[in-house]
Each structure stands twice: as structure tokens, then as C-alpha cells.
Design a protein around this nucleic acid. Structure first.
Length: 321
DNA sequence: AACTTATTCAACCGCAGCCTG
DNA sequence: TCAGGCTGCGGTTGAATAAGT
């Protein structure tokens, strides 16, 4: 069965010329042969001029389709696998600064595509906004990200680095006290991530696998942590704050020839230590969740982190413990 | 086991801006 | 200046799969 059979559907409704045009242009998932043809052509001739490239490579695809396939999937430096904690932190930070400027955000995450970041945002972040019953663009949700989610990510990055021991040569976070009134009611023992200065265009100098945030207000840095963008971490990404379960492997129809899709998840996760001191003892919150099993660390806490966020959210905005 | 619902993400679409003749 | 083609961006869709009932 040709998965592109739909291109032929209703062909009788078109004149012959249109039928030919319709039949020439392929749509839908790329085949291995198409991928190889595109890769081989770009290897020899370089990328760009996508429409003519498509024709020259013998691909019955639009130039846009070729460009998208190359940039989002076939490029040698495209990075497969889950978004790391550091990347999540950076995405949240940059999105708070630039909004839905996915391409701009992607420039600071080497190997990640705007499409991937956009999907991450829509599937993970927006879902949490929905769960918290607030708009993703609302100040309330942004505060939740800044003061609960992002510090939580920092905590987990630290924990992962600590668990990794000697391999983490330097891991440093600077979580300064803050002067944001909206958070003043939180316990002094809590570590707060300061609100980045919106006009600080130099806050993110570069990102080479490390989070390197340099602001006058001081926020957080990660250098050479075990889960930062070192090459050996690519295949074993940790899951994000909420998605701490085993992801399905890449669902691409072409996944069988991309070794990067063979991922092992949950290897570097640690149970959340009470970052906030307000009942965030996860063993209490969710006694059925196991953090350690047979010496391996698992994070099955999709719900745990949901609960964590919800609890912190409720506590902060409604004073509910 | 069968069915329904939820989730993920690759791919498509429309639009705006840029380039070139 | 303008028209047409190309490129890149952000929004959206839908197939595949997982999870739930």
C-alpha cells in the first residue's frame, strides 16, 4: 500500500496537466531513498537554492520540504534525543525574554531545531499552563516558571551533577537572593532565581552545551556538568521536570537507521530533594513513587512533578499548603 | 482484547521579508 | 518601482504510538 495514495485520489477531477503536477510532488513522510538522495546531493553540492536543489537531486518534493527535512532531521549536527535539563532551563529563560521566537531561541541550542523547541514548548510547557488553569502568557504562569520551575531545574541539574561525581568538573549555580516583591512571601530558605533583565541582550553570550548565563543580576551557570552538551550526553538525555518517564523512542518512520534514536532514559535522574521547604518531600507526597530500584535511579514522577508544581503554584498564589 | 483518549513530533501551510531582474 | 521567486519563520495538522478504561 502506497502511503502516498492520497496524491492520486480524485485524479479524475483534474485535467492531465494538473494530474501530472499532483503526481510529481510527493508529500508526507520521507523515505530512506529520498533522505539518501538529499544527503548525497547536499554533500556534493552544498545546501541552498532549495527548489532547484530538489529538481537536481531528482526529488519530487518542494524546495521547502527539502529544506525542512535537511534542517530538522538530516543535518549532520542535528541533535537527536530528549531535551536536557540545561536545555530546558535555557528554553524557559530565552522564551521569557523573546517569546515565540523559536528560530532565535534555537540559535542558542546547537543542534536543536526551532521545530523541536516549538514542539517542546507546546507539548510540555503549555500543557502545564493548562493543568495549572492559567494562560501560558499570563504573569502567573510566567512567575511559576521563573520561581518554581526554573529553580527546580537548577536543583535537578545540580543533583545530576553531584550524582555524577568526579566527572562534573565544575558545576556552579548562583542563586542570589532577590528583590522581587511577588516572591517575598516565600520562605527565606528558598532559593530564588532572579528575574532576568528583559533588556539585557548580552545575558546569554553563547551556549556550547553549557548554560552560560551572565547577567548583572546574576542567575545561574553550568559548566561542564554531566548533562550539559557534551557529546557523550547526547544519547542519554535526562527527561525534563515533568516528563520524567521513559519516552517512546523516536517515532519517525526512518528511526531504524538513526542510531541516535536508541536512547536510554532516566539514567541520571535523582529524586527531588526538597528544594522548597514547603512539604516538598516527595517520598511523603507520593509514597508509591520509587526513586531507587535495584541500584538504578528512576524517575517515574510525571505525577510527582505535576504535584510539585501544582503544590508550589497553589501555595504561592493561593496560600494553600 | 478491544476500544477510546492522550501525547508526541515530523511535516505542511500561509505569510512576510528579501533578492533579483 | 514592481513583479515573481526564494527563504525563513511561526502556527497548525495529522499519523503513529502510548496510556487509560
Amino acid at each position: 500500500m502506497d502511503i502516498y495514495h492520497d496524491e492520486l485520489d480524485g485524479a479524475n477531477n483534474y485535467d492531465n496537466q494538473i494530474i501530472e503536477e499532483e503526481m510529481e510532488l510527493r508529500r508526507g513522510p520521507w523515505t530512506l531513498e529520498e533522505d539518501l538522495a538529499l544527503m548525497n546531493y547536499i554533500t556534493q553540492h552544498g545546501e541552498g537554492r532549495w527548489n532547484s536543489l530538489s529538481r537536481s537531486a531528482g526529488l519530487n518534493r518542494t524546495g521547502k520540504s527539502c529544506r525542512l527535512r535537511w534542517l530538522n532531521y538530516l543535518r549532520p549536527d542535528v541533535r537527536r534525543g530528549n531535551i536536557t535539563l540545561e536545555e530546558q532551563l535555557l528554553i524557559l529563560e530565552l522564551h521569557s525574554r523573546w517569546g515565540n521566537r523559536w528560530s532565535k531561541i534555537a540559535q542558542h541550542l546547537p543542534g536543536r531545531t526551532d521545530n523541536e523547541i516549538k514542539n517542546y514548548w507546546r507539548t510540555r510547557v503549555q500543557k502545564h499552563a493548562k493543568q495549572l488553569k492559567c494562560d501560558v502568557d499570563s504573569k502567573r504562569f510566567k512567575d511559576t516558571m521563573r520561581y518554581i520551575w526554573m529553580p527546580r531545574l537548577v536543583e535537578r541539574i545540580q543533583a545530576a551533577a553531584a550524582a555524577d561525581g568526579a566527572s562534573a568538573t565544575t558545576t556552579q549555580y548562583q542563586l542570589n537572593s532577590h528583590n522581587n516583591s511577588s516572591m517575598d512571601n516565600m520562605a527565606s530558605s528558598q532559593k530564588i532565581l532572579p528575574v532576568p533583565q528583559a533588556d539585557n541582550s548580552n545575558m546569554l553570550g553563547n551556549y556550547g552545551g553549557d548554560i552560560l548565563v551572565n547577567a548583572n543580576t546574576t542567575s545561574y551557570t553550568v559548566e561542564n556538568s554531566s548533562t550539559a552538551g557534551s557529546s557523550d550526553s547526547f544519547g542519554t538525555p535526562v527527561s525534563d521536570l515533568t516528563d520524567c518517564y521513559n519516552y517512546p523512542v523516536n517515532q519517525s518512520t526512518n528511526q531504524d537507521y538513526y542510531p541516535g534514536n536508541q536512547l536510554a532514559y532516566g539514567e541520571t535522574l535523582t529524586g527531588p530533594a526538597g528544594y522548597f521547604n514547603q512539604g516538598s518531600d516527595f517520598t511523603v507526597m507520593e509514597p508509591n513513587n520509587q526513586w531507587m530500584d535495584d541500584g538504578n535511579i528512576y524517575d517515574n514522577s510525571w505525577n510527582v512533578d505535576d504535584m510539585f508544581l501544582q503544590q508550589q503554584f497553589n501555595n504561592h498564589f493561593y496560600g494553600i499548603n
